[in-house]
Design a protein around this nucleic acid. Structure first.
Lengths: 155, 155
DNA sequence: CTCGGACGTGAAGTCGACTTGAGGTCAAGG
DNA sequence: CCTTGACCTCAAGTCGACTTCACGTCCGAG
């Protein structure tokens, strides 16, 4: 069994068929077609999906993930080293996210006592001390802590 | 100057007028009206907005924030202790978020070497070891690390 | 009296990552 | 032959937190 149906890929990866079709549309995965038009995925799609999943957890958008995947060789199958290279940059991202959250928590600790919540001075409502520098932008938490895909039924 | 116009509130809080109208609609803030129909906000709205902002940074949805705000007394103006009470529960949330991210990062560290990215075993693509337990749900990172409001122009 | 600017409203649009729905095809089994 | 189930496509819907738009109003200055 060399090629997988969309149902098999879905079952093995946990990614919904509709999401797989969407991913194909977005160029994140590719599939050949049977004479009848049904998708057939190579086994390697599972690793690709794992990468997508991991990248999402780190906070990358599908666009960014696509860009990363596009740097894979293409002729030869990607090696472990390829995957490692792609995910190396994530550490910084995670470190930044953790730092931002930690700062927020520490701000919380110091704020709980006073209940100040001053728009200007409180580390909670204005973390990173970035506020009111210029009129235009970049207040509050930078877009470091971004969405992680909503896990539909774990609410 | 006891009451503030929407423009003044916006300028002092960094919250766009459209957002302020939206917040009023959602019951997050209240405003009286002039004879002409223009909103007039009490100064206390600034503290409320700071609270909203902080709660968003911690990852609460506006619905949750509204629920929290609804527990405020209402007759008497909220005290520092009130605000502190509301934000006390956030620490756990932040701790959980930090823990999840840290776990993810540590998984990354151990994965970068091998580049495995196995759907089943890799801590990166399958953090928390929750996977493949049951067929239905709750794989991947739980919805702990959720959206932080998109900071419009800080991209 | 007119103009500009700040404000009002309700409806519709935006973004990301999908899901849902309607309607159709294909292969296997009874 | 007919059904069932897995698959297909394309369009539209969903969710959250807003923004944008089109159009109308109020107020003070000139």
């Amino acid at each position: 069994m060399e090629l997988l149906t969309i149902g098999q890929v879905s079952a093995r990866s946990g990614v919904a068929p509709s999401a797989l079709r969407y991913y194909e549309q977005q160029g994140l995965v590719t599939a050949t077609r049977t004479s009848g038009g049904a998708r057939r995925f190579p086994r390697s799609v599972l690793r690709r999906l794992a990468f997508v999943r991991a990248a999402q957890n780190v906070g990358l958008s599908l666009t960014e993930i696509r860009a990363a995947l596009d740097t894979l060789p293409g002729e030869r199958p990607p090696t472990a080293a390829d995957w490692a290279r792609l995910s190396r940059g994530w550490r910084d991202r995670l470190d930044a996210q953790i730092a931002a959250l930690t700062q927020l928590r520490d701000g919380l600790d110091s704020c709980i006592g006073c209940g100040c919540l001053s728009l200007d001075r409180c580390a909670l409502s204005n973390p990173g001390d970035v506020a009111s520098r210029e009129g235009s932008g970049a207040r509050w938490l930078s877009p470091l802590l971004r969405r992680v895909p909503p896990t539909s039924n774990a609410g």
